[in-house]
Design a binder for these strands. Structure first.
Lengths: 155, 155
DNA sequence: GCCAAAATGGTAACATGCTGTCAATATGCG
DNA sequence: CGCATATTGACAGCATGTTACCATTTTGGC
């Protein structure tokens, strides 16, 4: 017999395992989706973050917004710059922390990626209506806030 | 003005971003939690998967259960074996695919990790009651199933 | 029994994240 | 102004995941 004692079958464990699996599935799906554009999930996400800020953010700010370390985003941004998809604009408020902006080619590629993603995002809404989807997102955000509090308080 | 046009503000995007952030937060939290035991999030998860199967699974089966590539789990299992936390038992059904089993030390460490995690898991239930938490998990699992279908169908 | 296909393990190359450390730049207080 | 602190960028090293490829073992159709 296979024993399944607490906390092994705890509902919180089921959620955590599902988060790990879904994270992997999303990255895998995204990689396949934007591969024809020469992008990866990570580069696509960084482009999205740049678009979100409208080209007014330096690398450190992009990283904060994505919940990643500065260094991780820096490397992706450097690669995007090598590929000619992003460039750097002088930052009036900081001599060293240049602003990350998309080149025309970057904007073109990002628009094409958005066009590929839109029908999938809409399909997700068919499978799970917008209300439940937003509630799910809120629940996850609430749990993350608590986890991060817990983290900070034990430092 | 910062433009925020569709599909940029799509509810599916908000969920995907939250999944990425929560995934990172969970790994970070887990790393800190089990560090005193000489574990990491990844090794802890593999131990959990072994415990789940009761020592009756070879590496490839563990990987399927976790939604990871065989090779990723193989490397972690090899490291756990080097550390003396797991071992291999002969598989009556397969000469080469040996069964991964915990050593007494491995069981001890895993029990200690479970003891550290239990209060946190219970706290999560305080922040979000069990019903909502399970519903959230089900919603995520449903979305992942659809995404993976989509993936397979376009292969 | 035999051979093709699938499953499994092993190894290597690579992508993406992390931490640690240092230098350069802003910021704020005396 | 001058100095402590925070922010930012750069670089190195490492952990964890991926895909690709090959060898071995099992399985199943002929």
């Amino acid at each position: 017999m296979i024993e399944t004692k607490p906390p092994f079958d705890h509902p919180a464990n089921a959620l955590a395992l599902e988060i790990f699996r879904l994270n992997g599935a999303l990255i895998k799906f995204g990689d396949a989706l934007v591969k024809p554009l020469g992008l990866t999930s990570a580069r696509w996400q960084v482009l999205g973050s740049i678009a979100h800020g409208g080209g007014t953010f330096p690398v450190a700010r992009l990283a904060d917004n994505m919940g990643l370390a500065r260094q991780s985003v820096q490397r992706i941004v450097d690669e995007l710059a090598d590929s000619g998809l992003v460039g750097f604009a002088p930052n009036p408020a900081h001599k060293r922390a240049k602003l990350v902006v998309m080149t025309p080619r970057g904007e073109d590629v990002f628009e094409k990626a958005s066009a590929l993603w839109l029908p999938v995002a809409d399909a997700l809404l068919t499978w799970l209506d917008a209300h439940r989807l937003q509630q799910t997102t809120e629940n996850l955000a609430a749990l993350r806030a608590r986890l991060e509090d817990h983290d900070r308080s034990s430092e």
